[in-house]
Design a protein around this nucleic acid. Structure first.
Length: 228
DNA sequence: GCGACAG
DNA sequence: ATCTTGTCGC
């Protein structure tokens, strides 16, 4: 069996080969709820400093949303950013960090798309399938699909792609643009929205993702002042 | 050929 | 994602 992280490694592969990996991942997605007792929920995000990538995962308590564990890793960037291939740029380091976690989260929110991807395999889905963990994709821009912008805070409208309901546009605060919520793995379209709403704490992004954002930013600040 | 295009 | 100060608004 192939090591988990290797399923995100773009080295030596053509874009066609990477596309085939995504199709294989998409064929293994489960869009029904396979979530047991929810005790912990994590947020995953990446930041960059020059030619290095900083991948972080923050694990929080499901009810208080306070940090239980946070880990990060810094690696050389293996691949340039190419739209629809994000998981081969950020997936490898995130997979490495996940394996170092003492607490394996019951659910993980990932900065990026889930099934709302041309081949049905955004980074949230890719991580969920490879790591066998329930995931939800949270992004700020639509990659594919169409929707109607929600207006009122708390309002959510369906994101439709090729006649299929693949996610939502959620107006998380009064002033921010809507965030895009899509199932990654082991969760239904409906639950992806209700779960995400549970983690909103008055900010644009659900708390686990916001904490991961902040942590990544902090690590980046430390690195630039120390090594430069 | 043209436009779109997560982070 | 990142480069970047002040500034408009609640």
């Amino acid at each position: 069996m192939i090591l988990p992280c290797e399923q995100f490694n773009p080295e030596g592969k053509s874009l066609e080969e990477l596309r085939n990996i995504q199709l294989k991942i998409a064929s293994n997605v489960a869009l029904s709820d396979h979530i047991g007792t929810l005790k912990t929920v994590a947020g995953a995000d990446c930041s960059y400093i020059e030619d290095r990538i900083i991948a972080v995962i923050v694990v929080t308590d499901i009810s208080s949303l306070e940090v239980l564990e946070q880990k990060y890793i810094v690696q050389p960037v293996k691949m340039p950013y190419i739209s629809t291939y994000l998981s081969f740029r950020e997936g490898y380091p995130l997979c490495c960090v996940f394996q170092e976690l003492r607490i394996k989260p019951d659910l993980m929110l990932v900065d990026g798309c889930g099934i709302s991807h041309p081949r049905g395999a955004g980074i949230a889905t890719h991580l969920g399938v490879v790591l066998n963990v329930p995931t939800i994709g949270i992004s700020k821009k639509v990659l594919c699909g169409k929707s109607v912008a929600p207006i009122k805070q708390g309002e959510a409208n369906p994101l439709i792609h090729e006649s299929k309901h693949i996610g939502w546009l959620l107006k998380s605060t009064k002033t921010s643009k809507p965030i895009i919520v899509t199932p990654g793995h082991y969760i239904s379209v409906k639950s992806a929205l209700s779960m995400t709403k549970m983690f909103l704490k008055g900010y644009k992004l659900p708390e686990p993702i916001r904490l991961a954002d902040n942590f990544a930013y902090m690590i980046r600040s430390q690195l630039r002042s120390k090594v430069k």
